[in-house]
Simulated assay, not measured.
Amino acid sequence: MRYEISEHDQLPLIESFVESFQRATGAKVLDRKYEVPCHDGNVDLLLKIATPSGTWEMPIELKRVVYPRDVRQAVWVLDGYRSAPTDNAIVPMLLAEQLSYGAREELIRRGIGFYDASGSLYLHHDKWLVNIDRKPKTSPKQRTISLFTGSREMVIHALLQSKGDWLTGLALSELSKTSSFTVSTVLQELERLEWVESEGKGRQLRRRLSKPGDLLDAWVEAWQKRKENKTKWYFFCPKPGQLLNQISYRAEAAGYDIEWAITGAIAANAISPLLTQTNTAELQVTPGRIEEMAHIIGLKPAEKGTNVVLIERSGSSMLFRQRLEGYEGWFASPFVQYLDLLDGRGRNAELAAQFRQDILKV
C-alpha cells in the first residue's frame, strides 16, 4: 500500500475520528472506501457524509507523525481529489497519531482539516467550523539524538552564526567543517523540533534557522551540564585593567601551534562594556596543551588569588574565533562567550542579558 500505515493499524484512530466528528457536527458517515483513485494518485480513505447542509465527500490522508515538512505530500494528494468534478462538497482531512503545532498551522493555512490521537479536531467548510484544540501527544518510541556533542554541536554553532541566512547542506557542511551526513542528521532533528524551515528541493533545497532563541536556550542547558578540565593560575599584572591585553600578548607567542581564545566575562565585557572591572581571564586551549600554554604565558598554579583559568576545548568551541580591534590575540565566538557568561558568578548574568540583546541579537 502507498500510505504509511495499514487500514488495520489505523482503525482505532479512524473510529475515534468518526465518533468525534459525528458528535461535534451531528453529521452521519454513510460509507467509507480505502485507496480511492484520484488525479494525483490515491487517497487513503474516502468518507461519504450526510450533513444538515447536504452530502460531503471527505478524502482523508492517514499518517503516523506529521511535522510541517510532511504536510506537502498530503496536500498534493488531497488537492488532486479536490480538483475532481463532483456534485457534492469536498472537505479534505488529514488524520495522524501525532500532529505537531507547526503541522496544524500549515494544514489550516492550506484549508485542510485534521484530527489526531490527542482528540484535536479542526474543520472549516462554508459555515461549518469545528475547533477542538488539545496538546499534541508525543510518541514514546520517538528517537531523539544529542545535538550538542562532537561534530553535531559544530553544525549547531554554524547555524547560529549564520544569522538566519538560507543555506544549502553543502554550504553548512563547509561552514561547520563537518560531513554532509552530520549536517543532514542535525537538520532532520531540528526540522522535527520545528526550529528550521526549508525551501526548494533536491540540490536546490535550502534551510535556515527560524527559531534561534529556542536553539540557543537548548545549547545553554546542555552547556551547563558538561564537565570540562579547568585549571586555575595566577599571572602577575600590576594593573588589573591590563590583564586582558597582557595575557593575550603573551599567548600570541604560541603562534599557530596551539589553538586558543579568550572567552567569558573579560572577553564579552570588551565587546559590550557593562562591568567596571573583570578580574579573571578565561582562555580555552587545545586539549593536552594547558601546561605548555601556562609556561608560554608565564602562569603559576594557584588555588587562591586566581586571575587566569585555562579550559581544555576543541571542536565547536574553537569555531569562528575572531580578532577584536584594539586588542591582542584571539577571542572566542560571541556564542561561546555568551555560554560561558552563564556560570552564576557575580554580575555575569546581567552582562549575558545585555550581550545577548546587543551582540547576539537572539
Rank of each mutant, 00 (worst) to 15 (best):
H125V: 04
I112R: 02
S83A: 09
S248T: 07
L30Q: 02
E35F: 12
T231S: 03
A294T: 06
E97P: 00
Q354I: 00
R203M: 04
V196A: 02
K33N: 11
S184P: 08
K232A: 09
L244S: 05
R69N: 06
E57D: 08
V155T: 12
L62W: 05
Q354R: 11
Y122F: 04
D70F: 02
L78N: 01
R134M: 10
L341F: 12
L190V: 10
K232Q: 06
D343H: 01
K127R: 14
T149Q: 04
P287R: 01
K225E: 11
I145C: 03
W233L: 04
N131P: 15
A261M: 07
R69V: 09
W233S: 01
C237H: 04
E7H: 05
S248A: 04
K135M: 15
V362W: 12
V71Q: 07
K232I: 10
E97T: 11
K127E: 10
E303Q: 09
Y34W: 03
V220L: 14
P85A: 15
H125M: 06
N269M: 12
G315A: 04
D214V: 07
G329L: 13
N88P: 06
I112E: 01
R347I: 00
T144L: 04
W128Q: 11
G346S: 03
L30R: 08
G102Q: 08
F331G: 02
M293E: 05
E61V: 08
S100H: 01
T185E: 02
E97M: 14
Q357N: 11
F355A: 15
C237A: 09
I14N: 10
I108M: 11
E153S: 07
E61L: 10
E312M: 12
G326E: 07
R192N: 06
W223V: 00
S83W: 13
R313S: 15
Q98D: 05
M93R: 12
I49H: 02
L121M: 04
L30K: 12
L167E: 08
G315S: 15
L215E: 02
Q142Y: 11
D358H: 06
E312Y: 00
G298K: 06
G315D: 07
N131T: 12
L283G: 03
V36T: 08
F181P: 02
P240N: 11
Q10M: 03
L243H: 09
K28R: 15
G326L: 14
S248M: 03
G213P: 09
P273S: 11
A158I: 07
R134N: 13
R192I: 03
H8F: 14
S333E: 00
R289D: 13
E328P: 01
P85L: 05
E174Q: 10
H157F: 13
L215R: 08
D165E: 07
N131A: 03
V65P: 00
A251V: 14
S210G: 02
D40P: 08
I290F: 09
A281Y: 07
D358A: 12
T280K: 06
K361A: 14
F320V: 01
P136I: 05
T51K: 13
G54F: 15
P140Q: 10
L94I: 10
P334E: 00
E191F: 01
K135G: 11
F17R: 13
